[in-house]
Lab assay of single mutants.
Amino acid sequence: ELSWTAEAEKMLGKVPFFVRKKVRKNTDNYAREIGEPVVTADVFRKAKEHLG
């Protein structure tokens, strides 16, 4: 699991709890794919757009 900024964690907190774990995993995987060592708010937004 990658490191997350406080802002990205806050955004994740707005995701319904029953899918939060999956969203975190998918976002981590997306960040790795694009070469990001940390999940930022920008990476979170891009993952959301990319993953739907």
Rank of each mutant, 00 (worst) to 15 (best):
M11E: 09
A41P: 07
K46A: 13
G52T: 14
K22G: 08
V43R: 01
S3K: 14
T5E: 04
M11Q: 06
V19R: 12
M11F: 05
M11K: 04
A8K: 01
V19P: 03
G35C: 06
G13S: 15
V23G: 01
K10N: 10
P16R: 04
R24D: 00
T27Y: 10
P37W: 12
S3N: 10
L2P: 08
R20C: 03
K25V: 12
F18Y: 12
K46D: 07
R32L: 08
D42H: 08
V23T: 07
G13W: 11
K22Q: 15
A8N: 00
K22V: 13
M11P: 00
P37E: 11
P37M: 13
V23C: 06
F44Y: 11
P37D: 10
H50W: 13
P37V: 14
Y30M: 03
T5I: 02
G52N: 14
S3R: 14
M11L: 14
G52H: 13
A6L: 12
P37R: 10
K48F: 14
G13I: 11
T5A: 04
E36D: 04
I34F: 10
P16M: 04
L12G: 01
N26A: 15
M11S: 04
K21G: 14
S3T: 14
T40E: 02
R32V: 07
E49L: 13
T40D: 05
H50L: 12
S3A: 12
H50M: 10
V15D: 03
F18A: 13
R45C: 06
A47V: 05
K21W: 14
V43F: 05
L51S: 09
T5L: 03
E1W: 12
L51E: 08
K14G: 07
K21S: 13
K14Q: 12
R32K: 09
R45I: 12
L2F: 05
V39P: 01
R45S: 07
F44D: 01
N29R: 12
L51M: 14
K21P: 12
V19I: 14
D42I: 07
E7L: 06
K10G: 10
R24P: 00
H50S: 11
E1P: 14
L51V: 09
D42M: 08
E9G: 04
V38A: 06
E33D: 10
W4Q: 01
R45K: 11
R24V: 03
V43C: 04
F18R: 14
R24F: 03
